[in-house]
Amino acid sequence: MPLILHGLTPIHWAVAGASIALITLTLLAVANRRLGVSSGLEDLCSLVIDQPFYRRTAVTSGRPWRLPFLAGLVVGGFLSAALGGGWSPTWALGMLDRAAGLGHGAKLAWMFVGGVFTGFGTRLANGCTSGHGIFGNSNFEIPSLVASCCFMAAGIVTTQVIYRVVF
């Protein structure tokens, strides 16, 4: 199945997984940091919100690596598009377009609501697919195994309801 992005053929899962592992291990071996993206959301919040929660050492001490890393994610997506057929803004949303045919405003609302779930949920859970799913599970941390089972289960139920019941 082609990617939504320029209909590109995705790289093999084993290559992608091994690459992510090498990035994770490099970050730890060189910079003494455990991979984790959702904590970066706090980092971004801490730039503009002055609350004790955002003055935690865990937030402020990670800023020197997290902010450049987050910026890199955007650059990586940009390069992927630019090198894979050219960069241009798009509203394409694959199966959701075929199932619901949402307009621009409805897509923004849909994504905003989903984003609130993700932002609140990952902070309450203290991690997401990277910090729990990749790093925590690789480090045999029970909380990460629990978290992974929960977010996979909730994702499965939600998508099944959306595409097998609603649409």
């Binding site: 939504i4 992005l5 993206v37 959702s38 970066g40 959301l41 987050l70 994610l73 955007v74 650059v75 990586g76 997506g77 940009f78 390069l79 992927s80 598009a81 960069w87 241009s88 803004p89 798009t90 509203w91 394409a92 949303l93 959701l96 849909w110 994504m111 609501v113 989903g114 984003g115 609130v116 779930f117 993700t118 932002g119 609140f120 949920g121 990952t122 902070r123 309450l124 859970a125 203290n126 997401c128 697919t129 990277s130 729990h132 909380p143 629990v146 978290a147 992974s148 089972c149 929960c150 977010f151 996979m152 289960a153 909730a154 994702g155 499965i156 139920v157 939600t158 998508t159 959306i162």
Partner: peptide, 30 residues
């Protein structure tokens, strides 16, 4: 850990993005 991850799973399904890919999708131009 449980409640937050359940909420996150809903968000991941709705947007089709976990936190890293939100930024990646922005970079892609979505």
């Amino acid at each position: 850990t449980v409640a937050g991850s359940l909420l996150f799973g809903i968000g991941w399904s709705l947007t089709g993005m976990c936190p890293g890919p939100i930024l990646v999708n922005i970079g892609e131009g979505k």
